[in-house]
């Protein structure tokens, strides 16, 4: 029993994905290490089924057909390729949700969820909580100390323009 507890605690400290299924949304190289110039182990075609082990920045460590390697994180989506194509995206998920709950934006709150649409449409202010929120605020000096404690660099990076397709 004690070992089970120790195991669970240890497990919860480990921010891994631990064997979740994902699929490739385009053909992608599987690398030996999470770097662009690392050796290529295999080339996975689109819709390859993989098992995600962990993430390191923009890379996912995966298992595919017995081999382990790294692929660009954004070349993957979680789940089953066929199921994803069926449910689609672009808000279709939301539509299904509405259909599933039988409402059209006026879902009756069950009392379990606080953030119901009803409460947002007929709001009642909470000035006490607002005052409490203010007490948690961190000032500029404290924030700088925090950044320093995490050895966080501050590189200069410009905002990104919208990709061409987005502008309609």
């Amino acid at each position: 029993m004690r070992w089970l507890l120790v195991f669970c605690l240890g497990w919860s400290m480990f921010p891994a994905h631990a064997g979740e299924t994902a699929y490739t949304v385009r053909s992608t190289d599987m690398k030996a290490k999470p770097f662009t110039d690392a050796a290529t182990l295999a080339s996975l075609p689109v819709n390859s089924r993989v098992e995600v082990l962990t993430r390191k920045s923009g890379w996912m460590q995966i298992k595919n057909g017995g081999a382990t390697g790294w692929v660009r994180m954004l070349n993957l989506r979680f789940g089953d390729a066929a199921a994803q194509r069926k449910s689609g995206d672009s808000g279709l998920g939301a539509l299904f949700n509405v259909a599933a709950t039988g409402g059209s934006g006026s879902t009756v709150s069950t009392g379990v969820r606080g953030l119901s649409e009803e409460k947002l449409k007929n709001p009642s202010p909470n000035p006490r909580a607002l005052a409490e929120l203010r007490r948690y605020a961190v000032n500029e000096k404290e924030a700088l100390t925090f950044g320093k404690s995490g050895k966080l660099a501050t590189p200069r990076v410009g905002y990104l323009p919208a990709p061409a397709k987005e502008a309609k």
């Binding site: 606080g114 119901s116 202010p125 909470n126 948690y136 605020a137 950044g147 966080l152």
Partner: peptide, 26 residues
């Protein structure tokens, strides 16, 4: 913000609230 807090209360954990504020303000 006050209305939103009327719909969902604040988590009662000062450590988490302070931590999120530190990351946010930074």
């Amino acid at each position: 913000a006050s209305n939103l807090l009327g719909a969902a209360p604040l988590l009662q954990n000062q450590r988490v609230q302070k931590y999120v504020n530190s990351v946010g303000r930074w």
